[in-house]
């Protein structure tokens, strides 16, 4: 395995917890002593509609925090898939939320994971867990961290008011990981 350099775009509808998913990966990276940056799309772009954030996790100091040539795409809705699959590098990892994305990705130049993230979240009783399902799937598929490292970071990104929901979030992460063969 070469040097770690994950250039991740996480994208979806506003409300799908896209930024939080990115934050969770960032905290996990920080506690694993990796170099990491997280940056959201900001301003009018984020009002209504799609949201995305860029996460870079690397052994080297992070160059640009803004990902123009991603090697990981986590797409939680169809517009995000169609927008960002066009710029994925060869050999990348693509995870898409097949529960609500009714098309197949056009991109097929690396590892493609069809993840029924919304369905798994709904089975757990809360569609807002979609992001956690996807996080579990990403960590499992990439092997960048252990699932336990990811789980350990959860309390750092969930506000204190919702700490009673931590076990449910962990369950979602585990289900997401299990969905990746």
């Amino acid at each position: 395995m070469g040097k770690l350099n994950e250039k991740i775009i996480v994208a979806g509808f506003g409300g799908q917890g896209v930024l939080l998913l990115g934050k969770l990966l960032s905290y996990t990276a920080m506690y694993s002593d990796k170099n990491v940056s997280w940056i959201p799309s900001y301003g009018p772009e984020m009002r209504g509609g799609t949201a995305n954030c860029n996460v870079v996790i690397s052994d080297e100091p992070v160059g640009s925090p803004i990902v123009t040539e991603p090697n990981v795409l986590i797409a939680l809705n169809r517009p995000s898939l169609e927008k960002f699959e066009q710029i994925l590098e060869e050999g990348s990892l693509l995870i898409y939320n097949s529960s609500i994305i009714e098309v197949e990705p056009k991109w097929n130049n690396g590892k493609v994971i069809s993840l029924a993230a919304s369905d798994i979240a709904n089975e757990l009783g809360n569609p807002r867990l979609t992001n956690m399902v996807a996080a579990g799937a990403y960590v499992k598929a990439s092997g960048v961290f252990t699932i336990q490292e990811l789980i350990d970071a959860v309390p750092h990104v969930i506000s204190k008011r919702f700490h009673n929901l931590i076990p449910l979030n962990i369950e979602a992460i585990e289900k997401g990981a299990a969905a990746v063969s």
């Binding site: 960032s26 920080m30 990491v36």
Partner: peptide, 10 residues
């Protein structure tokens, strides 16, 4: 700049 302001890092 906007990126440094908006980005999170350790």
């Amino acid at each position: 700049d906007g990126a440094l302001g908006q980005m999170m890092e350790p």
